[in-house]
Computed example of a mutant assay.
Amino acid sequence: MPIKNVQIPSTSPITSPRCYIGLTQWQHAAWQDNFLERSSHVHVLQAYARHFSSVEGNTTFYGLPKQSTVEQWYKESSEQFRFCFKFPQEISHHRQLTHCKNETLQLFERLAPLQEKLGLLCIQLPAAFGPDSLNNLENYLKSLPADWQYAVEIRHPEFFQKGKAEQQLNQLLVSHNCNRISFDTRSLFAHPADDVVSLKAKEHKPQLPVHAISTGQSPMIRFITPLDWKWGAPYLDPWIKKAITWMQAGKTPYFFFHTPDNAEAPQLAAYFVEKLEAALPGCCLFTPWREQSRKQDTLF
């Protein structure tokens, strides 16, 4: 049965092209001496939100935060900020999108205080979730409140072969205005690095083709490079062109940047913004930090 008894946040209409920029987390030990440098009374999320306009909310994949924590996130984030939370793994992995009405309702109720600061709610499905399970996805999407924005990351290889299964998936997502997440790991796997951190990243990240398709209003791209992020920077060029195409079509893309240890993920994001805004000035909801701006001219 559809979940209807949850207050739906309103969103302001988009009047100019915009692209949300974020990382996979809002704090990291390696970031403390640059853009996260702050006084003791400033919350780390507030420092992050001074520069980035979104974040991948992985915490909800493992469990729901306390209500007081959600309320604090709202207070510490800027007006333009958008959280992109994952559905709990209990829903996506353990129950395979079935028999989870109570768990889904709890998620929406817990996130309700964030109101208009919710961006995409993301369903990350396991590699075992294949074409035979598409009915589960269809029924689950039908049950969700219609006024929220959703995105789905699929990892079964058959959904990347441009055959009947992928066509059915894309048509299903389009019919629900649900965004298909693209996870670009090409540069990570193309690099011959054999250090422990890189090998661990290759073990846990999917190695799948990249299909840059937009099935909803807000396409979402997850992009990861090798530890030396500059090595993977050329893989961003097609995404610059795609982002421009999407924004010119009235869409609002979300881009999230990773490295194997995420230590230099902020620099990777800043490089992408510099390249994109050279073509569409002011389109990225992103504010550079002083240390980064001094180094921009000497990156290559």
Rank of each mutant, 00 (worst) to 15 (best):
L64N: 10
W73L: 07
V174T: 11
P226E: 12
D228Q: 10
A29E: 12
A128W: 00
R110A: 08
K202N: 11
T259F: 00
Q67I: 05
D297K: 12
T225L: 15
K101P: 00
W31E: 13
Q292C: 07
K75Y: 09
L276C: 15
R290L: 04
A49W: 07
Y271L: 14
S77G: 01
L105Q: 06
Y140D: 03
V273F: 02
T225G: 14
K295R: 10
G250Q: 07
P126Y: 14
P131K: 15
A151F: 06
S78A: 10
H211I: 10
R180M: 15
K4C: 06
Q124I: 03
H191Y: 08
P88Y: 11
M220A: 12
F272S: 05
K230M: 07
S16F: 02
L299S: 11
P145Y: 03
L137E: 02
G163Q: 08
K251R: 15
Y254S: 07
I154A: 15
R186I: 05
D147P: 01
F52P: 09
D194I: 01
Q149D: 14
F52T: 13
R18M: 10
V152P: 08
D261M: 03
T245S: 15
I224T: 14
Q72K: 09
S40V: 06
Q161V: 03
A270L: 01
W148I: 05
E116L: 03
K164N: 13
E274D: 13
K164P: 05
W246H: 12
G163R: 05
L45E: 05
R294G: 10
H41G: 08
